[in-house]
């Protein structure tokens, strides 16, 4: 299936999580912290740490490690805290 990662088109596979798509794309971080602007990516891998938050289809605060990727997903890095549109 085709998805976009920060504007770039990528091929993803059925059953992959968004975090797996990002890691497979060579990304090790996809969110910055809201105070220090520090990079964050995968940490707990099972949905409890909320470090791997990412914007999916315009919706911020999505846990990349739990979210299965879907055809056409627009995945974007999250800049600190974002207000949903």
């Amino acid at each position: 299936m085709r998805v976009r990662v920060d504007g770039e088109e990528r091929i993803a596979e059925e059953g992959q999580t968004v975090a797996a798509v990002l890691l497979a794309a060579g990304r090790d971080s996809w969110r910055t912290t809201r105070f220090g602007g520090r990079p964050r990516g995968l940490f707990c891998g099972i949905g409890v740490c909320f470090d791997c938050l990412v914007v999916v289809n315009g919706v911020p605060d999505v846990r990349a490690c739990l979210r299965p990727v879907a055809e056409g997903d627009d995945i974007r890095s999250q800049d600190g805290a974002e207000v949903p549109s």
Binding site: P39, L42, F43, C44, G45
Partner: peptide, 9 residues
């Protein structure tokens, strides 16, 4: 730091 994760992850 990115790259540090849990064993479970």
């Amino acid at each position: 730091l990115p790259g540090v994760c849990t064993a479970g992850a």
